[in-house]
């Protein structure tokens, strides 16, 4: 009797003082309902807001799918050469694309390529200006950094929920999910790159009376380019790694067969499509890294006359 009394007194220590089940249900319900009514009211206008994005994606898919495969391979090989100036890399690109096509994954690969391209372009278009703004203001940096942390660590399934509620299943919500996930590195590395530019060179730009724009275009951006480029590379890799998850909400491409393989335990199907994703990733990575190295060849000291 006495003992029970004591236990009852100490209950707040052993049991976490939480909201009751009813209160929690009410809280969740009110959040869900207000979001649902928001979706009903604005869903359609939001959808039309993203129309240009959708059209861009559909157009690039059509181009890649409609073009004869030799032309596509040639074009990609040419781009790889322009970027890397390395025949070894060009050979690897052509060989892996031929293997992908031979294994019957050509169409899916083209769809994945086009969504990666579109998402990367959008991420760069948003990320670089945002990174520049962040580099200019410590307060903005303090504000945006935690948001980027959330974007990178929040399980992607969680933000898929509101996106799907707002926009339904399909390409656009998939793209948005990919962009959210792929955006942080480019923002962070643009910010970092600009902040790391040699202070004396920036001072020289000021001393010669540069405007903020002249300073940005003549000094800060060119000197931050290697870092920005590392950001672009990372963004592409992040986008690729989201392909499978995005396929859960209707993004077509290499992710869908992987998803099918997971649910049906088709090991070889999963492995082949997974390898195709790896091949694309390596192509993007090697080409962009080589390009990054080439643009900063005058950075290192030493004489290369």
């Amino acid at each position: 009797m006495f003992y029970d009394q004591e236990v009852a007194d100490m209950e707040w220590l052993t049991e976490f003082p939480s909201l009751t089940r009813g209160e929690l249900r009410g809280f969740r319900k009110s959040v869900d309902e207000s979001f649902r009514s928001f979706t009903q009211e604005y869903g359609e206008s939001l959808e039309s807001f993203f129309d240009p994005l959708l059209n861009f994606l559909i157009w690039s898919e059509k181009v890649l799918l409609a073009a004869p495969w030799p032309v596509v391979i040639l074009a990609i090989a040419a781009l790889a050469f322009l970027g890397s100036h390395s025949w070894k890399i060009v050979f690897g690109v052509v060989a892996s694309l031929l293997a992908i096509g031979y294994m019957g994954m050509w169409d899916d690969t083209m769809r994945t390529l086009s969504i990666i391209t579109v998402c990367t372009i959008v991420a760069i278009a948003i990320g670089i200006p945002l990174g520049i703004l962040m580099a200019r203001s410590n307060r903005l940096q303090a504000l945006i950094t935690p948001i980027l942390d959330i974007m990178q660590t929040m399980p992607s399934f969680v933000y898929l929920i509101p996106v799907v509620m707002l926009l339904g299943i399909g390409k656009v919500p998939g793209m948005i999910a990919v962009i959210i996930y792929a955006l942080p590195p480019i923002v962070r590395l643009t910010n970092l790159g600009i902040r790391q530019v040699d202070a004396e060179v920036v001072e020289a730009a000021n001393a010669f009376g540069c405007t903020a724009w002249q300073k940005l275009t003549n000094v800060q951006m060119p000197l931050a380019l290697p870092s920005i480029f590392a950001g672009v590379n990372q963004t592409i890799m992040m986008a690729l790694s989201m392909v499978v998850i995005a396929s859960m909400i209707g993004v077509t491409g290499l992710g869908q067969p992987v998803l099918k393989a997971i649910t049906n335990q088709y090991f070889s199907l999963g492995l082949l499509n997974g390898l195709a994703i790896v091949a694309i990733a390596i192509i993007f990575d090697r080409v962009s890294q080589r390009y990054g190295l080439r643009i900063q060849k005058h950075r290192q000291g030493g004489h290369h006359v």
């Binding site: 004396e200 001072e203 020289a204 009376g209 060119p222 950075r299």
Partner: peptide
Amino acid sequence: QEKTAMVFQKFALLPH
């Protein structure tokens, strides 16, 4: 731009 010009200890040239 017009009245002053500066020379720096570590040169501060544009490497690119």
